[in-house]
Nucleic acid binder design. Structure first.
Length: 257
DNA sequence: TCAGTTGTTTATAT
DNA sequence: AATATAAACAACTG
């Protein structure tokens, strides 16, 4: 789940419940998920409000910076007064007034504590601009030198940060662009349409903190196993691996040519 | 039992 | 040099 819209939801969640509270301690329930080892110095600090870059969530805590990545199954969970720990809680920030748990079933994500700007830069310095900050001209300039498929480019975090498999499929579907199409064959019109749809998909999904489970979204029709019908025209959706990821598209709305 | 899974990194191939 | 592909990471679902 965790792509830009999801992490935006986690950001709001952290800021609503946990930001501004004093850190009493940090429990490394699963030691390996605190990727940088020590939590020394955090106790007594105030947890700052979070910002987001791409799929990363970042918050200051005293002189340190806390960074979280949610991998495939990560999320945050707040319990106001001593709620039970969940089996997948990996790192728990025990705060004044409640606990913020970094929960991750599959453990592809993690929590990093950086004490120098250099360390932050090592983690997120290679990311491209956040997808929300990319205007139409930026989009054109970023894509101009790229050679591969639309899907590979939009998924590349060093090009544009925040778009994942589901968002990219959703964007291509709205823009009526086949995700496997080479960028060399995308003219200005379709390129601008991709940009407009990127903005629209983000705008519409961010308030939900996810791609909303509502009619009119491709993701609602893709189903885990078998693809459903195109929400726009009813055509049976196609499914194949493109740029290494399971990709769903409508063969009628998004023709290959 | 086995294939499949929203992300990233690394190695290898083209 | 830039892209593409596959595997690995870990744990669960259908």
């Amino acid at each position: 789940m965790p792509e830009l819209s999801d992490v935006e939801g986690f950001k709001r969640y952290l800021n609503r419940h946990a930001a501004g509270r004093r850190i009493e301690r940090v429990d490394r329930v699963d030691r390996s998920m605190l990727r940088t080892g020590s939590v020394r110095g955090l106790a007594g600090c105030e947890l700052g409000s979070a910002r987001r870059h791409g799929k990363w969530l970042i918050a200051e805590a005293g002189l340190a910076t806390v960074l979280m990545h949610f991998g495939m199954t990560g999320l945050l969970h707040w319990s106001g007064n001593g709620g039970a720990r969940h089996v997948h809680d990996r790192v728990v920030f025990v705060l004044d007034g409640g606990e913020l748990a970094y929960r991750d079933m599959r453990k592809f994500g993690g929590v990093w504590i950086a004490r120098e700007a250099r360390r932050v830069d090592e983690l997120i310095g290679s990311l491209g601009p956040d997808a929300l900050e990319v205007d139409r001209d930026d989009f054109r300039e970023l894509l101009a030198p790229r050679r591969g498929s639309v899907k590979a480019a939009l998924m590349d975090q060093t090009l544009i940060a925040g778009l994942g498999n589901l968002l990219v499929d959703e964007i291509c579907w709205r823009a009526r662009v086949h995700p496997g199409l080479a960028l060399a064959r995308i003219g200005p019109e379709r390129r601008d349409r991709l940009h407009a749809c990127m903005r629209a998909v983000l705008r519409d999904s961010i308030p939900h903190g996810r791609i909303p489970p509502e009619p009119g979204w491709l993701t609602g029709a893709r189903d885990d196993r078998r693809s459903g019908a195109c929400p726009r025209c009813g055509t049976r959706l196609r499914r194949a691996t493109i740029a290494g990821r399971t990709t769903v598209w409508c063969p009628r709305c998004q023709p290959k040519r």
